[in-house]
């Protein structure tokens, strides 16, 4: 039982990171039909912004985190939208998908070439101690990651649901043609979702890198996890992405421990196949109406 709680909490922590990436993934899908296959690399890169801010500019870690987040919002938010999405989206979803695949390779290889191919140690966010919850030993790190991710998603939820701008963003996602008629600046709203996505992946990067170390290949598994989490939860629902991320993290951890650790990478795929077979709209997704 103790080990179960331990595994469950650390699974939730990993899942919360997946959820951050998956939420951003569904946000930009909803507002601009962008399926970002570079989302994993988007989680990998901000950690290197932070490291570069520390190594090159000699900033302290907390300041470097802010710089990393700001750089992430600028590069992965504004520049990504202006430089790639705006050009490719008019040509259709598929050319954009291929562009994001190219972008993922570019980001990965750039980090390898210009920074390092070695895994870089990343400063810890919390002290490396364990606490005792119901007799189970749980690391403070896991609890912190989970808490920070929940706080970020709660803040996003409040912003989207309870502010004028947030509702204008939702309106833009749900019915862009009508949003324009009401004078909603839809282009700006779409840009906001890209910046929010960049902020979420930046946070995910800072949270996960102390555990995984910062490495140029980190995006491979994270991107896949974000994609699976988004599909499992329901591609068109932010809350679906949250549930999908958490379910995936816990499922992955428990199945690796109790079933087979050598098949750790396979279990998310099994979950994905089961969901696609039995609930193709995702756990919380709604069936999308299509006009043929």
């Amino acid at each position: 039982m103790q080990s179960f709680i331990q595994l469950f909490v650390s699974g939730l922590a990993t899942g919360a990171i997946y959820a951050l990436a998956a939420v951003g993934f569904t946000l930009i899908w909803q507002t601009s039909q962008t399926i970002n296959f570079a989302q994993g690399e988007f989680v990998m890169l901000p950690a290197f912004f932070v490291l570069a801010a520390m190594d090159i500019f000699g900033l302290a870690f907390p300041a470097a985190c802010f710089v990393g987040l700001a750089a992430s919002m600028l590069v992965l938010g504004v520049l990504f939208k202006r430089g790639i999405v705006d050009f490719m989206l008019p040509h259709g979803v598929l050319p954009l998908v291929i562009s994001t695949i190219a972008l993922s390779l570019l980001l990965k290889e750039s980090v390898k070439t210009f920074y390092s191919s070695q895994a870089q140690p990343f400063p810890p966010l919390t002290s490396d101690i364990d606490i005792n919850i119901l007799g189970a030993i749980v690391s403070v790190q896991s609890v912190f990651v989970l808490g920070a991710a929940i706080a970020a998603i709660a803040a996003l939820h409040l912003f989207l649901g309870h502010t004028g701008v947030g509702r204008q963003m939702q309106a833009t996602a749900q019915n862009p043609a009508v949003a324009v008629l009401l004078g909603i600046p839809t282009k700006r709203m779409i840009m906001y979702t890209f910046v929010i996505n960049a902020g979420l992946v930046g946070l995910a990067s800072i949270l996960i890198s102390p555990i995984y170390l910062a490495k140029f290949t980190n995006g491979d598994s994270l991107g896949l996890a974000a994609f699976v989490a988004a599909i499992v939860g329901g591609f068109n629902q932010v809350r679906g992405a949250i549930v999908g991320g958490l379910v995936l993290g816990v499922f992955e951890n428990l199945s690796a421990a109790y079933l087979s650790s050598s098949y750790r990478g396979a279990f998310p795929m099994i979950l994905l196949v089961l969901v696609i077979l039995f609930r193709p709209q995702g756990l919380l997704g709604r069936v999308e109406e299509r006009t043929v």
Binding site: Q170, A171, Q174, A177, L182
Partner: peptide
Amino acid sequence: NIFPELSVRHNLELGAVA
């Protein structure tokens, strides 16, 4: 021409964006 997942009140409020 509604926003299906927003409440009726919030749909109405969006009429005042301009």
